[in-house]
Design a protein around this nucleic acid. Structure first.
Length: 299
DNA sequence: AACAGGCCCAACCGCCCCGTG
DNA sequence: GCACGGGGCGGTTGGGCCTGT
């Protein structure tokens, strides 16, 4: 707080929140001198603030044409994600592409998002375990559905497909909402992979507020989403992700559509990367995931 | 109503670069 | 060439607010 001046007279350097009077002084200084020579604000005795502090205040709060108090739009979010991928954490550079946003804004947006992603991934990892340890009535009632779809990795794809084709999906008790939120064709394709079959079996255990329940409509629940999520979920018993992914890659006869969707959504060769899966998620999608997995996490 | 946890954001810190004497 | 100070930038922190339990 205190720092000796050259003439041995101690000068108090103020820190912390800025008062409106200080803002006014800073505005007047910039009006007169331009946004430069920040340290002279202190040496001239105008404000007991460091040049750095003055500059930061001007750049982040007082500069004209700043967007204040409004969240990032979807377009801005996408731009930040794209630019971050290309440029890395060059927040100042990224901010130049967003009018009215500062590097601090971009940085805060990004770090909040990263924290949120980390929390969602952590929650989703433990969601299944917590559910299992906490079986409620609805889950017990869903026993029939479990039996019907108790497809284990050992089952052949054809067996699975035939089994499912003979089932009336709306009969699946509490899971009918889950099934209704996507098409039967999607589920059939989705179940072509034994690993995913097992994943779906586990997915059904989220029968109250499952991942799938909270998707608002089928058009959001693209076929590519589920396999990718399943394959990448630590919650699921996949011993060998690469084998699983190779399996997906090689099953061209059955999975052309699936692959097209997956690659269309996430790019070729991006399977098996949990971060890739979430990288392009807009905030509203994170809200859905957060609302779903977040519910299962302890608070 | 009280509390806990998360979000948002302003501000500081530390490092680096660059200009200047 | 070197030291020093200012400015720029990314990382981090802390506090207020909001929301869910």
């Amino acid at each position: 707080m205190r720092r000796p001046r050259h003439n041995n007279v101690e000068e108090v350097i103020k820190k912390g929140p800025w008062a409106s009077e200080e803002d006014e002084v800073l505005r007047n200084f910039v009006k007169k001198n331009g946004p430069r020579d920040w340290s002279s604000i202190r040496t001239m005795g105008l404000l007991p603030r460091t040049g750095k502090s003055c500059r930061l205040r001007w750049v982040n709060k007082l500069r004209p044409n700043l967007k204040k108090g409004c969240k990032f739009t979807a377009e801005e979010e996408k731009l930040v994600l794209d630019l971050q991928e290309k440029l890395g954490n060059k927040w100042a550079t990224i901010a130049t592409y967003l009018s009215g946003r500062t590097d601090n804004d971009v940085k805060n947006f990004w770090s909040t998002r990263q924290k949120r992603l980390a929390r969602i991934l952590k929650s989703s990892t433990h969601a299944g375990t917590k559910k299992k340890n906490n079986k409620g009535k609805a889950e017990v009632d869903d026993e029939k559905a479990h039996n019907l779809l108790d497809v284990k990795p050992g089952n052949s794809r054809q067996q699975v497909k035939e089994e499912l084709q003979h089932q009336s999906l709306p009969e699946l008790g509490n899971t009918k909402d889950v099934c209704a939120s996507t098409s039967k064709e999607t589920i059939l394709d989705f179940c072509l992979l034994p690993e995913i079959c097992h994943g779906y079996d586990q997915l059904l255990e989220f029968n109250e507020s499952s991942f799938m329940d909270d998707f608002p409509s089928q058009d959001i629940l693209e076929i590519g989403d589920l396999p990718d999520l399943m394959i990448n979920s630590d919650d699921l018993p996949f011993d060998d992700l690469s084998a699983c992914n190779n399996d997906l890659m090689n099953n061209d006869a059955c999975n052309n559509d699936l692959m097209n969707n997956v690659e269309g959504a996430y790019g070729k060769g991006k399977l098996g990367s949990p971060t890739n899966f979430f990288d392009d998620f807009p905030t509203d999608m994170l809200d859905y995931l957060d609302g779903t997995f977040g519910k299962t996490s302890s608070k």
